[in-house]
């Protein structure tokens, strides 16, 4: 079995390691073999890892991160075209982008995504404290957004659940953006450049509500009122 090619180059934030396409086990093996071989040269380096389309689950990536840290190196970013891997990397607190531009095919893909600004990100899970969702388009969450979680969207934010974290709609200045939730009690709510803080929970049953800018100020209304 031939191992895929491992390439390394210096970038501003450390070293970018690119592993050729192959099955995950082979990629991993090739990478670790390379790191062991080059251990003198690499001592203490911060690594960003580029692994093509490989969809990785948290156990796989977490294991690799530990194996890298055992070698005295730090894995700080994982670059991948696979949304699954990106999500995994974000969950493990790894960066998924580096400041230097990526190889060209990826830039092309990202650009087409960002152009419309109307893309919607749908997330079906509870966002616990420490999670952060960012999208230049809209964000829809099916689940709760707990205190300590953050949502930042270029467009609208809709939460089919309890919204108690920090939310910013129209983050690039869109004053038409709205925030809707089944229970709207965010620790902080921003629309464009307006901010309001701590909505206290009213007694009684919560009703779905919606926040938007009316005459330059954020107004929250029960959904029935529309």
């Amino acid at each position: 079995m031939t191992l895929p090619k491992v390439e390394i180059k210096g970038i501003r934030d450390g070293l970018l390691v690119t592993v050729g396409e192959a099955s995950w086990e082979t990629q991993r093996e090739a990478l670790l073999a390379y790191l062991d071989e080059q251990s003198d040269f690499l001592q203490g380096a911060r690594l960003a890892l580029s692994i093509g389309n490989q969809p990785l689950r948290p156990v796989q990536l977490g294991r690799l991160r530990d194996e890298i840290s055992e070698r005295g190196l730090t894995l700080w970013a994982v670059l991948s075209d696979s949304p699954k891997t990106q999500e995994t990397a974000q969950n493990l607190g790894l960066a998924t982008r580096i400041s230097r531009p990526l190889p060209e095919r990826r830039i092309a893909r990202l650009d087409t995504r960002l152009e419309s600004g109307e893309q919607t990100m749908l997330v079906k899970r509870t966002l616990r404290s420490g999670y952060r969702l960012e999208n230049t388009g809209h964000i829809v969450v099916i689940g709760d957004v707990n205190p300590g979680a953050e949502i930042i969207a270029g467009g609208h934010v809709i939460v089919w659940g309890r919204l108690r974290g920090m939310v910013h709609a129209g983050a690039q200045g869109d004053e038409e953006a709205m925030v809707c939730a089944l229970e709207l009690f965010p620790t902080q709510l921003r629309i464009a450049s307006q901010v309001i803080t701590t909505l206290h929970r009213r007694r009684g049953k919560a009703v779905p509500s919606c926040a938007q800018i009316v005459d330059g100020a954020i107004v929250i209304r029960d959904w029935d009122a529309h």
């Binding site: 948290p58 156990v59 977490g62 969950n91 404290s129 420490g130 999670y131």
Partner: peptide, 15 residues
């Protein structure tokens, strides 16, 4: 409770 929420999220992330 806030910290427990964070930890539960990390535990989920680590499967």
């Amino acid at each position: 409770v806030r910290d427990a929420d964070r930890i539960i999220g990390l535990i989920e992330a680590e499967e």
